[in-house]
Design a protein around this nucleic acid. Sequence first.
DNA 1: CTTCTTGTTACTGA
DNA 2: ATCAGTAACAAGAA
Length: 283
Amino acid sequence: MPELPEVETVRTDLKRKLLNKRIKEVEVRLPKIVRPKNFAATLTQNSFVDVTRRGKLIIFHLKKKGFMLVHLKMTGQLVFRDHDQFTVGGHSQKGMGMDLPNKYSHVIFKFEDESQLFFNDLRQFGYLKIVNQTELNKVLAKFGVEPLEPEFTPEKWQKLTENRRTNIKAFLLNQAVVTGIGNIYADEVLFASHVLPTRTVNTLTTREKTAIYKNIRLILQKAIDHRGTTFNDYVDGDGKKGSFIQFLKVFHKNGEPCPDCGAIIQKTRVVGRGTHFCKNCQV
DNA sequence: CTTCTTGTTACTGA
DNA sequence: ATCAGTAACAAGAA
């Protein structure tokens, strides 16, 4: 599941590779994935001059007016292939991680230097959308604070958590509060902070709130350093898996012993999501 | 066959 | 107005 660390990894990978390459052709194999109807025509002969991110949303800045927004949702991938990476003598090269395009390649960008960018999505939840500046502003207005930016201060966190009567898991998943946290990192942050996912936000002590604040920053940054978490589908801009899975302490560990105390990790459902915790370490 | 998976949003109700 | 809670979406794995 691409969350902030995974999306950030893809963003930096792609920014390094495809800036200012002229787009020769865009092949849309599954039209419902893109918007608006003139998606391919808008991009043809255009180029990307910057790649930025807000929460889990990737923003490609177009040379000729506008932006392309890409959301990977659960199983989306953006994989770049240089010319010599996917064909050798006309044959698909093996051992590169994945052969592309595959049956989940719904949009293919072809650049003038014969490199390609593939948008793959098994569940077809993701999307690519061209917007203008006004539309972009409207979309970004709904996003909460970026947890790794300087604007996310302890004071701001204390203010955000005042008078909230929802549980802390739902609060961490709420993109209008803090952007970029999904199911994996919500569970990991709460375990590291010794707080149960079902705790109501306004009953948390200052000490607990501070622990959550610090762990959001620590864990997201460490996950970026390890290029994200790959369970099934997530890959970086090269089609390679992230390695943060080895640092997960509770997510998908139900039935296994807690790494801190040895108690069995529990799994329940909170706000409709699989939620993992140690009933001994978290209160 | 049923159940499970998650990011986001529409919708409902307080 | 603001906040909270839930269903729905999609499609494949088990």
